[in-house]
Structure formats: structure tokens, C-alpha cells
């Protein structure tokens, strides 16, 4: 019976949607940021799989259809960006300055902290692409000789934390302009953070989408330079 349940291609998708729905319900009822639907979904699904002795591979054989939608969904981020193209034209200096500042501080931060913790070179380059979208980040890590699995894990954790903490961090640092919020969220926490930016507003979402592509490409160049430093 357990095998039959887990073997269904709909099992993984059902568990994912149900746990996300519970997170969404808790979030709406309590209004607390810690009840982030994505975070709740992860923290419910992992123990459920462990307790039910269901391998990740079995879960993924169904849940992969959700991941499959990620490429077309990312392509669609061009639509809100297109609708806000006038903002990109008028504020391009601020936008570009913001993304470059974010990319440089990401690389510098990883450099300083890796040196402080005495990490090896392989660990250091593993973390260099931590703020950018998974597919580019993995390529960078592989190219520089990092641990690709660890890079993927850290990128996902960064994205989920960015998604959960974005309103708090923007509040603490008094980032109030919608354009600035979007750039901050997209540059720091790629597509997972962008999902939160989309909820905050159209401008935030569009600017966050733009940051994913621009910061990703800048990091490809920046990380190969920073890899020489430590």
C-alpha cells in the first residue's frame, strides 16, 4: 500500500501542494512572516518523507513535474519586466549601480568570511555563486572546482531565507522605494526571493526578475576573478 501511494506520479505533487496550502493557511490566519508557505512546505514535507521511509528519489519522480514548470515560468518573468520597461529606461543608473553593488558585496562577503573561518579553496568557490540562480550558480561552481551539490543546497537555502526575510531586511535598512526593494531581493536571493517580490508588487517583481539575469551574468565574470584571491 505504502509503495503504491508513493509510486503514483501524483503523490509528490499532492504532498507539495498540500503542505504549501497548510503554510499559506497558517500565514493568512496568523499574519506571521515565519509561517512562510514555502518554508512550511519544506519543513512539513521532509519529516513526512523521513517518517514514511520514502526516498527523495521516489518523491521526486512525481514532484519533478513541478520543477519542470520552472523554465517556462522564468521565461514568463519577461512579461512583468516588459510592462515596467519605462522604469528600466528612466532608472537604469540606479538599477545598475544597485545590482553591481550587490554582486560585489556578495563576492567580497564570501571572501572575507571564508578567510575568517579558514575554509579551503574548494569550499570558498562553492559559496561564491550563492546569491544567483541555481542553474548559473552550479555552472560557476563546477567551472571553479567547487562542490556542486553544496552550491545547489546553499543557493536554495539563500533563496528561501531571502523569501522569508525580505520584508524584515527591507524594513530594518529602510529600503522603501519599490524599485530598490526589487533590486535588493532579486540580487540577494534570485528566483525564490523574486516569488516574494511578486507578492509585494508589480514593480518589485519586475525589478527582482531583472536582477536575477543581470546579477547572474555579472557573477559569472566576477567569481572567476575573485577565485584568484584566496
Amino acid at each position: 500500500m505504502a509503495g503504491m501511494v508513493a509510486d503514483s506520479a501524483y503523490f509528490g505533487v499532492t504532498v507539495s501542494l498540500l503542505s504549501y496550502g497548510i503554510g499559506w493557511f497558517l500565514n493568512k490566519k496568523t499574519g506571521m512572516a515565519v509561517f512562510n508557505p514555502l518554508l512550511i512546505s519544506i519543513t512539513l514535507t521532509i519529516p513526512a518523507l523521513v517518517v514514511g521511509r520514502i526516498d527523495y528519489d521516489v518523491y521526486y519522480s512525481g514532484a519533478k513535474y513541478l520543477s519542470w514548470l520552472l523554465t517556462p515560468a522564468t521565461v514568463c518573468l519577461a512579461v512583468p519586466l516588459y510592462e515596467k520597461l519605462a522604469l528600466l529606461r528612466s532608472d537604469w543608473k540606479a538599477i545598475f549601480t544597485g545590482i553591481v553593488s550587490g554582486v560585489l558585496s556578495s563576492l567580497l562577503c564570501v571572501l572575507l568570511l571564508s578567510a575568517a573561518f579558514g575554509l579551503g579553496h574548494a569550499d570558498y568557490v562553492t559559496f561564491l555563486p550563492k546569491s544567483i540562480t541555481t542553474a548559473i550558480g552550479i555552472g560557476v561552481s563546477e567551472e571553479l572546482g567547487g562542490h556542486v551539490n553544496l552550491t545547489a543546497a546553499v543557493i536554495i537555502i539563500t533563496g528561501v531565507l531571502g523569501n522569508v526575510l525580505a520584508p524584515l531586511i527591507c524594513g530594518i535598512f529602510r529600503i522603501t522605494e519599490p524599485v530598490a526593494k526589487g533590486i535588493a531581493i532579486g540580487t540577494a536571493s534570485h528566483a525564490v526571493g523574486t516569488a516574494k517580490a511578486m507578492e509585494m508588487g508589480e514593480t518589485e517583481g519586475a525589478m527582482s526578475s531583472l536582477s536575477i539575469a543581470v546579477s547572474g551574468i555579472l557573477t559569472v565574470a566576477g567569481a572567476s576573478v575573485f577565485a584568484q584571491f584566496y
Binding site: G12, Y20, S41, Y60, L66, S67, L69, A195
Partner: peptide, 17 residues
């Protein structure tokens, strides 16, 4: 697709296990 985008990250995040 953009509205349901957050759920597309669940499988990769569960992969953290």
C-alpha cells in the same frame, strides 16, 4: 505560471534532505 512559481521550488528545496 508566475503566481504558482513558489511551489516549483519545493522539490529542489526538499532535496536538501
Amino acid at each position: 505560471l508566475i503566481e504558482i512559481m513558489p511551489i516549483m521550488f519545493i522539490p529542489a528545496a526538499v532535496g536538501l534532505m
